[in-house]
Design a protein around this nucleic acid. Structure first.
Length: 875
RNA sequence: GCCCGUGUGGCGGAAUGGUAGACGCAGGGGAUUCAAAAUCCCCCGCCGCGAGGCGUGCCGGUUCGAGUCCGGCCACGGGUACCA
């Protein structure tokens, strides 16, 4: 699930840095920390392992804290985005553990999905082998980072042990009516005879065959997420520690709307229908109706197509192209006049033409609308094209009559062809009055609808969790018996042909009907990989259980206290997980409190890097890895590179920095510190070699400081100042960790380190300061912190030491510095006792040179004093 | 198209409506050194000799005071239901 995405392009300092450096790889590293890291990092990782520091055990005597980062897709190698994501979670986990929580911090693999099948198609082999090999590589790459993960809980979603439990839940959900089958549209590649993912449709054509894709209907499995539309919407209000932007996106996605459902009667009833049912959120514009539009999949359209070849051809044309909302919305608005007319509900003599339109979807509402071109941009485009009436219903209060006029519903407008309510009212009022009026007059009824559609989980692919049902001639669709689970994927499959290998497997499909025992066929659809990732957080609470969850463990560990992942998952993954938790609750697999599984959510940005390019034969671009480039040249050939602004790190552009090379060059602590240092965690971060080197130098400086302090004589001056600074640092750094202000914590750590370096204090005070520094740094640089802690005689592991607490008495100061502004511009400042009365302060201000000069003998118009903050003299 | 974000020095970025540019990088100057590396110290938004002026994507507004709030734009990014 964890993938990077593109971002705003930017230049970085790598190029300049490389110019002024001797010709060596920019990743050669800083000798001091490279030496240090090599000597200490594995040592402390071993010490943590031996002490089983990160092993999570239920302990009712301690408050628990469950921190989870979105698990990675095993693509092959970890990238800096992973390092950043997991370091953030690690900082939270380590900080929480130090402040007294019993922490659960697990890791697993989102292991089903298309890339494994693509790899098998491209270079042979089996998707499972590819996936498990990738997992092994990535685990080996991740471990040197020193993450505080309980690796005993690790699993992959492609483990039969995991997906078998998923099948058990599917069966439970089926029995509770949460799963059903219906027809749905897919992208069909007519050459490869296979279903394509949206991503595999490029410019309307199949990515391999190049053939124009078609929409095709298949019977597919669905989760009834729509049963929970209202609850998923209203419960958003309870998610206090979720970003507002995510809640807004989900709210809009669910799309609750109120409107009127009514019907137009047809003048010609010889086509199996006497009326067209429509749904509208703007019934106040009924008097501006100029046409009725129906979907090309509407039953009436299908009926008419039977004896109208042109119309049938138009509908067929509409079914071409991809299925994405974006494509449908951006497509040219086209229609076909059916020749039928519909009577306006208010005036039976008023007849409206009925069009089939390519932009009306059967999936939403009733598959039919009325068009009001004066107040809808799309209808306006359509009406202009087909020369239909454009009748305004209301106008702007200011009198502007430009059409289409589409004000916000909250804006007050003047109704010129209204039929309910006041002349001047808001759109919202207009809609409400219109619905009331229509209901009172027998024209339709008030309806609430949701944009959210049921979750189609069927995939016509091999590498996914098999849907555990059987098709029996006699019994129909029958769930597999639980004792026969898992329904395992067969291993003997080939990917030399497109399509689903399960479909063409010679024996796998054959089975006995679980109900009657007769010969039957297995379902060959597998599940959407979003199903796998919709409950892994629950499975981590009892990863080896032979039921999906264990009540005791789920009760203790749920909910996830802090969930961390990419903003790209704001809607689908998070909404599906919220639904699935409810469905698991309904089927007895999660407690009530876990219906909202994620107490707090943090969405982090991506890691980017600039791209190095040269031109090969035919001017084709050739990309180079950052480690192959120095001084703006390819090291091996001396060829000059072109530098392209930063983009998401991607294998194809080779702008990837391998965390493994960073760790071997600088050590894990440097990598961990740097990925969190410069940018706020919710924003993207630009990886620069110069930045990593600066971090490395700083950590070396801290290490030298600690060594110096160990050798210090006992006497010194200014102990009190240093002790005060230490307490201040405790507060400031902790605050950053508690609020995802890692970059702010790091800035404070730089400052605190400088204060200690410059201090002339004695050994005791300095030793206290440096040990505190090591503790405050320990969530970020746990290895170096352990080493310093041990050097200065700290007790046990710093990882297990209680978090330092600041003494409030050491934080108060009795003076305050306030800026003086004149007309809002800063001119001077005053340092005064904190408790100085306002009158005395005002006198001081009026006696200030800058103020006297500005006043030039006159009196101020106003004197604003915000205690402890600012003084503004208005002249 | 629609929904959600983001935009501040040469660069990454800081700033409960209250001193714009903390901290770091790059750059400049100095110390140390036979010399270099490493290290340490100082300077560093733009214009101006200076007084001072101008500055947070653009245009407008609210306010004693706006990077921050409101309205309208522009650019870029994420999502758009089968990429994960």
């Amino acid at each position: 699930m964890n993938r990077l995405s593109p971002r705003r392009a930017q230049w970085s300092g790598v190029w300049l840095c490389a110019l002024h450096r001797p010709a060596r790889s920019v990743y050669e590293g800083h000798p001091m920390t490279a030496y240090l890291a090599a000597n200490i990092e594995t040592k402390w990782q071993k010490a943590w392992d031996e002490a089983q520091v990160f092993l999570a055990r239920r302990d009712e005597s301690k408050p628990k804290y469950y921190v989870l980062e979105m698990f990675p897709y095993p693509s092959g190698r970890i990238h800096m985005g992973h390092v950043r994501n997991y370091t953030m979670g690690d900082v939270v986990a380590r900080h929480k553990a130090a402040t007294g929580f019993n922490v659960l911090h697990p890791m697993g693999w989102d292991a089903f999905g298309m890339p494994a099948e693509n790899a098998a198609m491209a270079s042979g082999g089996h998707p499972g082998e590819w996936t498990y090999a990738n997992i092994a590589t990535m685990r080996d790459q991740m471990k040197p980072l020193g993450l505080s993960i309980d690796w005993t809980r690790e699993f992959a979603t492609c483990d039969p042990e995991y997906y078998g439990q998923q099948q058990a839940m599917f069966i439970d959900m089926l029995s509770k009516g949460l799963v059903y089958r219906k027809n749905a549209t897919v992208n069909w590649d007519p050459i490869d005879m296979t279903v394509l993912a949206n991503e595999q449709v490029i410019d309307g054509c199949g990515w391999r065959s190049g053939a124009p894709v078609e929409r095709r209907e298949l019977t597919q499995w669905f989760f009834k997420i729509s049963d929970y539309s209202d609850e998923l919407l209203s419960a958003l209000d309870s998610l206090d520690n979720w970003p507002d932007k995510v809640k807004t996106m989900q709210k809009n996605w669910i799309g609750k709307s109120h409107g009127l459902q009514f019907s137009f009667s047809l003048t010609d009833t010889n086509h199996g229908a006497d009326r067209i049912e429509v749904y509208t959120t703007r019934p106040d514009t009924l008097m501006g109706a100029s046409f009725v539009g129906i979907s090309y999949d509407h039953p009436l359209a299908k009926k008419l197509a039977e004896d109208n070849a042109d119309l049938a051809a138009f509908c067929e044309e509409c079914r071409k192209g991809g299925t994405t909302e974006e494509e449908l919305e951006k497509a040219d608005k086209r229609g076909f006049d059916t020749g039928l007319t519909a009577r306006h509900p208010f005036d039976t003599a008023w007849e409206l033409p009925v069009y089939i339109a390519n932009f009306i979807l059967m999936d939403y509402g009733t598959g039919a609308v009325f068009g009001c071109p004066a107040h809808d941009a799309r209808d306006h485009e359509f009406a202009s094209k087909y020369d239909l009436a454009i009748t305004p219903v209301f106008e702007a209060m200011a009198g502007d009559t430009t059409l289409p006029f589409t004000p916000l519903k909250s804006e007050t407008v003047r109704y010129t062809r209204g039929f309910a309510g006041e002349d001047a009212q808001t759109g919202e009022q207009g809609v409400e009055r219109a619905i009331d009026f229509c209901e009172a007059n027998g024209v339709g009824q008030r309806v609430t609808k949701f944009r959210l559609r049921d979750w189609g989980l069927s995939r016509q692919r091999y590498w996914g969790c098999p849907i555990p049902v059987v098709h029996c001639q006699a019994c129909g669709v029958v769930p597999e018996k639980k004792e026969n689970l898992p329904v395992e994927l067969p291993k003997d499959v080939s990917f030399d042909l497109p399509g689903n290998p399960l479909d063409r497997h010679p024996t796998w499909r054959n089975c006995a009907c679980p109900a009657c025992g007769a010969d039957a066929l297995r379902e060959t659809d597998t599940m959407d990989t979003f199903v796998d990732s919709s409950w892994y957080y629950a499975r981590f609470t009892s990863p080896r259980a032979d039921t999906p969850t264990v009540a005791q463990d789920a009760d203790y560990w749920m909910n996830v206290d802090q969930y961390i992942g990419g903003i790209e998952h704001a809607i689908l993954h998070l909404l599906y997980s919220r639904f699935f938790a409810r469905a698991m609750n309904m089927t007895g697999h999660l407690p009530d409190k876990a219906r909202e599984p994620f107490n707090a959510l943090f969405t982090q940005g991506m890691v980017t890097h600039e791209i190095y390019q040269t031109r090969g034969d035919n001017g084709r671009p050739v990309y180079h890895l950052p480690e192959e480039v120095a001084q703006g040249k390819v090291i091996a050939t001396g060829e000059a590179v072109e530098i392209i602004p930063s983009a998401k790190m991607s294998k194809s552009k080779k702008n990837v920095v391998d965390p493994v090379s960073i760790i071997s060059a600088f050590g894990a602590d440097t990598a961990r510190w740097f990925v969190l240092s410069d940018s706020p965690p919710e924003r993207d971060v630009e990886w620069t070699a110069a930045g990593a080197e600066a971090t490395s130098k700083h950590l070396a400086r801290v290490w030298r400081l600690a060594s110096d302090v160990a050798d210090l004589p006992a006497s010194g001056t200014g102990d009190e100042d240093l002790i005060r600074a230490t307490h201040k640092a405790i507060v400031e750094v902790s605050q950053g960790f508690e609020s995802f202000g890692f970059n702010a914590s790091i800035a404070k750590l730089y400052g605190f380190t400088a204060v200690i370096s410059k201090s002339k204090a004695g050994k005791e005070a300095k030793s206290f300061a440096v040990k505190t520094l090591a503790q405050l740094m320990s969530p970020l640089t746990p290895h170096l912190s352990e080493e310093i802690w041990a050097l200065l005689g700290g007790t046990g592991l710093v990882t297990q030491a209680p978090w330092p607490v600041a003494d409030p008495a050491m934080l108060v100061s009795d003076t305050v510095t306030m800026p003086i502004q004149i007309n809002g511009k800063r001119r001077d400042e005053l340092t005064i006792p904190k408790d100085m009365p306002k009158e005395a302060l005002e006198k001081l201000v009026l006696a200030n040179d800058a103020v006297i000069k500005a006043l030039d003998g006159g009196q101020p118009k106003k004197l604003i004093v915000v205690p402890g903050r600012i003084i503004n003299v208005v002249i």
